[in-house]
Simulated assay, not measured.
Amino acid sequence: MDSDAAAAEGNITMALRPVLPQRLDWPSVMGLFMLNFGHLELALSDILKLRSRPESKNAVIKKSFHEKIRCLQQLAGQHPAMVAKRDQWEALIVRMDAIRDLRNHLSHSTLLHSVAEDFKTLIQVLCLTQDVSANVSNTLRLTFEELFDQNQRLADVVGELVALDHGCEGAYKPFSGTIGDDEMWTHCPDDAPGSGDTCC
């Protein structure tokens, strides 16, 4: 494994170390989700950088999370080392899209307080600021327990992303072809001069 691959693998390993709060309340659990979402994006960026031209690595980093997922989706359908597990990649990408939607929801939410029908129990939920006065049945109202559970699902997705990537034979060989409109992805044919190099 070359130095870039080794460094990226080191970053991915760091991404697997969970960020744990000292206490459990709304701010800590929301912050925990946002921090670990950053770990997910770091792992995704590292995976994509290993398959990009050296001069394009900075462009990969600057892509939005949505764009990075679409790059991964196209790679999974075309990269020789990933095609065999395309169904697994697609299933994981669906879960990553859902996590992205939740991240966006948290970014535009406020904590809503109400009282239960017994007039004693305080109810706290997260909802979009635009939906504060909307019908509960028509909007996403996230409870503390649901958000806490989503943190575990996020950690599971990070682990599955890294494990699936490492399970692809030749995973760190750059891809021959283009993704979308970007000429960022290439590799040397096996019989080409210098084919032992990471990128052409």
Rank of each mutant, 00 (worst) to 15 (best):
I47R: 05
R153E: 13
K63M: 15
T198K: 10
N135S: 13
F37D: 06
H39M: 06
D165A: 10
R103S: 03
A81H: 05
L50I: 12
E67G: 03
R53N: 09
F65Y: 12
Q152D: 07
R70K: 04
T178N: 13
L20G: 01
Q22P: 01
H39K: 08
L92V: 07
P174F: 11
R51P: 00
C188G: 02
N135L: 02
H187G: 02
Q152T: 13
R103D: 04
G180H: 03
L111F: 09
R153P: 00
S133R: 05
L102F: 05
L75R: 05
D4G: 01
G38V: 05
Y172E: 15
L112G: 00
V132R: 09
I61E: 12
L102I: 13
V132T: 14
R103A: 02
F37E: 08
T129Q: 14
L142S: 01
K62G: 00
A134H: 15
F119V: 01
A171K: 08
V162S: 11
E169G: 03
L50E: 14
Q22D: 13
D2I: 03
L42W: 01
A43S: 07
L72W: 06
V29E: 04
T13K: 10
T186E: 12
K173L: 13
A84L: 12
D2C: 08
H66C: 00
K49L: 14
L164Q: 07
K49V: 15
Q124C: 09
G31K: 00
L147P: 00
E41R: 08
A155C: 05
L50F: 03
M30P: 00
E183L: 12
E145K: 04
V29G: 02
L154P: 07
E117L: 06
L140M: 15
I123D: 10
V162R: 11
Q124S: 06
N58I: 09
D197C: 09
